[in-house]
Amino acid sequence: MNKILKRNTDDVAARSDFYRNAFNSTRKFSYNTVKALAINEDQLKNILPVQVSNDILMEPITDSSIKAYATVSNKSGLEIPKLSIQLNGADYIDDDGTLQELNITGDSIQFKRYRQFIGIAITDTIYNALDDKFVSSVEQGLKTAVEAIELNNMFSLQPKYEHMSFYTCGIKEIQGNDIYETIKAAIKDLPNPIKRNAKIVINSDDYIALVELLASKGISNIPFKQEIVIEEKCVNPVVGDLSYLHINYDNKVNYDVQKSIKDGLYYFTLDFYGDIQIKLRSAFRIVSVNK
């Protein structure tokens, strides 16, 4: 069941009151809504309440989402010292590639403020639905839009911001002619502490190709110990520890709502600031199979 529907009745009612007032532009929130969502009516009329914005931005949609494994934070001006980076809790780093990366990429990782825009359309039917259906539709739509932007950034071959994409940030590529052997070589090439927590991110077409190839070799089960995460945006499989993928949101989330006279739809838009950093490139490998 959707997480939104698991919230208590008072919380759902408060969120419903907030969205309905946002949609009809009155911004006259009830006392219970102001209290439950900690709304400052004078200052935050066009800013999403912290509790709501955190749920929309930071909660993954499903347990298999990339965001469920990544590091997610909400800190303004976040900076992480490189000295704090360890390999799955190890007190020392003995991998030459990792040591070289830490030596040449500076003393810290600085998260910047990149502005992103998302929007969803809500029909009158949804607007007039019961509170739980209404809140679920709005928040699920916003979460989906946020994650779509993030996945486009992570898996684009020509991203707007090169450091956000697995394919353009400088991750080592492992090439081969056989998807099974190439993934196996990529896992073997990872630092030993990384292998234990590594995931294999792959799209469904490549996953089917992998299963069919293994079947042709007489192998009935996928022999990798690493968990497989299906992500359709993934162009070439990515192998590595997704906890070194870090999404940070910076400061407040602004919203706006308008109803179109042309189609009768409510358009709910957000703009927010954030950054995606791959904190340790040597914790990943790109699997490139010649086709």
Rank of each mutant, 00 (worst) to 15 (best):
Y92G: 09
Y92S: 15
I93C: 11
D95V: 03
G97L: 05
T98P: 04
T98I: 04
T98L: 02
T98N: 01
Q100M: 07
Q100R: 00
E101Q: 00
E101D: 00
L102Q: 01
N103D: 08
N103L: 07
T105I: 06
G106Q: 03
G106A: 04
D107H: 08
S108M: 05
I109N: 02
I109V: 14
I109L: 11
K112V: 05
K112Y: 00
R113Y: 02
Y114F: 08
Q116L: 13
F117W: 06
F117N: 12
A121W: 02
I122A: 01
I122G: 00
I122E: 01
T123F: 10
T123S: 10
D124K: 12
D124T: 15
T125C: 06
T125H: 14
I126G: 01
Y127S: 03
Y127V: 07
N128G: 14
A129E: 09
A129R: 05
D132E: 09
S137N: 09
E139G: 01
Q140H: 03
G141D: 09
L142Q: 02
L142Y: 01
A145Y: 04
I149P: 00
E150Y: 14
L151S: 02
L151E: 13
L151N: 06
N152H: 01
N152E: 03
M154T: 07
F155E: 06
F155N: 01
S156D: 10
L157T: 13
L157D: 10
K160G: 15
Y161M: 11
E162Q: 15
H163L: 14
M164Y: 09
M164H: 14
M164F: 13
S165F: 14
F166K: 04
T168N: 12
C169L: 11
G170F: 08
I171F: 02
I171A: 00
I174C: 06
I174V: 13
I174G: 10
Q175S: 10
N177K: 07
D178S: 15
D178H: 12
I179C: 07
Y180R: 12
I183D: 11
I187T: 05
L190D: 13
N192A: 10
I194W: 03
K195Q: 04
R196N: 09
N197Y: 11
N197I: 06
N197D: 13
N197A: 08
K199M: 10
K199N: 02
I202C: 12
N203Q: 00
S204N: 15
D206G: 03
L210Q: 09
V211N: 02
E212M: 15
L213S: 04
L213Q: 07
L214H: 07
L214E: 03
A215R: 10
S216Y: 10
S216K: 06
G218V: 04
G218M: 05
S220G: 09
N221M: 12
N221T: 14
I222Q: 03
I222M: 06
P223W: 14
F224V: 13
F224H: 06
F224Y: 14
Q226C: 13
I228Y: 15
I228S: 11
I228C: 15
I228F: 11
V229A: 08
